[in-house]
Amino acid sequence: MATHLITGAGSGIGAALAERLAERGDELWLLARDAGRAAQLRERFPGARTLVGDLADPGRLSWAFSHQSVPGRLDSLLHVAGVVELGAVADTPVTTWQHQLNVNAVAPAELTRLLLPGLRIARGHVVFVNSGAGLRVSPEWGSYAASKFAVRAVADALREEERAHGLRVTTVYPGRTATAMQEKVHQQEGADYDATKWIDPASVATTILAALDLPRDADLTELTVRPGG
């Protein structure tokens, strides 16, 4: 039985991934931003354990974890949580830049640092769910894309730094996926939202599982997933 820690398990890709791993009988640790959210996750995923830590405040994650039990052995760390705010560079205040950089890039880096001992013991796998915006930038997407380019750099550096410890690092770049975040993006774009036009979160979860289940003689380092049809 493998042990996984997932961020963003409350909805979308993270929830689909947690469901699939729970069905396999794996042990789940789910990160929640507060105690109330942690209780909701435990109710939704019976048997799962929770850690409380706010990704919007990565400087306090170490303190938060020092007051909780953390997994001593970790087969995978799955960074799925993220936030998005659209806007032109000319109109984006520094607080918006900082919030997206904290949640999307700095917090995953810090969370990985804190959990590396358990990952090294297991020769584990770190998966960063990035975005198509982590590969190319469109107008109005500057601050979000900057955070996703940053987390791409974190993943690429980590892959080389931890190779000697047997860690595998995968970045997944999903296109538009039918999640609450995508609905928010459509609202900000002033566009009608039709979930059937976009990738099902379960399809991205399947992609992530393929990377996790790959035999050790091979490594999926980067995966791009695009809407079909």
Rank of each mutant, 00 (worst) to 15 (best):
A2G: 00
Y173W: 11
R123L: 07
G8M: 15
G228L: 14
E85K: 02
V129Y: 09
G142S: 15
S66Q: 15
S66E: 10
P46N: 10
L135M: 15
D200S: 14
D26M: 05
D34V: 04
R159Q: 02
E161H: 02
Q40T: 07
V52Q: 05
V80I: 10
N104P: 13
T221F: 02
E160H: 12
E140H: 12
E140T: 14
V172L: 04
L214F: 09
I13E: 07
H67E: 14
L135E: 11
V52T: 02
W29I: 05
A32M: 12
D34F: 06
A56C: 02
H165W: 09
R20W: 01
V80P: 08
G8P: 04
V80D: 10
D26I: 05
S131P: 03
A56D: 01
G166L: 05
G8H: 08
F65Y: 00
V204G: 00
L28K: 03
A35W: 11
R20I: 03
L21T: 08
E222S: 15
W29L: 06
G12Y: 05
D91Y: 15
Y144C: 01
T221D: 05
F128E: 01
D91C: 06
G166A: 11
T206F: 12
D91V: 09
E161V: 13
D54M: 08
H165Q: 07
P174R: 08
V204A: 01
T177N: 04
W97D: 11
I121C: 10
R168W: 14
R168V: 05
V185L: 09
F128M: 10
T224Q: 06
A64Q: 14
L167T: 05
R123M: 09
P117Q: 01
L220S: 06
E23H: 02
L41V: 10
F149E: 08
T50A: 10
A195S: 03
G10C: 09
D34L: 04
P108S: 05
L223C: 14
P227Q: 04
P58R: 00
L74F: 08
L77A: 08
L111E: 08
A205R: 07
L212M: 09
R163F: 13
N130Y: 09
L115H: 02
F45T: 10
W63L: 08
A105W: 01
L212W: 04
Y193T: 10
V137M: 09
E189R: 09
D75C: 08
R152P: 07
E85L: 01
T170G: 02
L214R: 11
A202F: 12
G87F: 13
V204C: 13
L167A: 05
D217H: 06
A178I: 14
V89L: 15
A18N: 07
W141E: 12
E19M: 06
D26Q: 05
L31V: 09
G190K: 03
R123C: 12
V169K: 00
P215I: 02
L135K: 15
W198K: 01
Q40M: 14
E140S: 13
G132E: 05
L101C: 12
L212T: 07
Q40A: 14
T171F: 03
L116S: 03
A38G: 13
L167Y: 01
R24T: 12
S131C: 02
H125F: 15
A48N: 02
L51Q: 11
L220K: 06
I13C: 02
L61M: 15
G36E: 13
E27G: 10
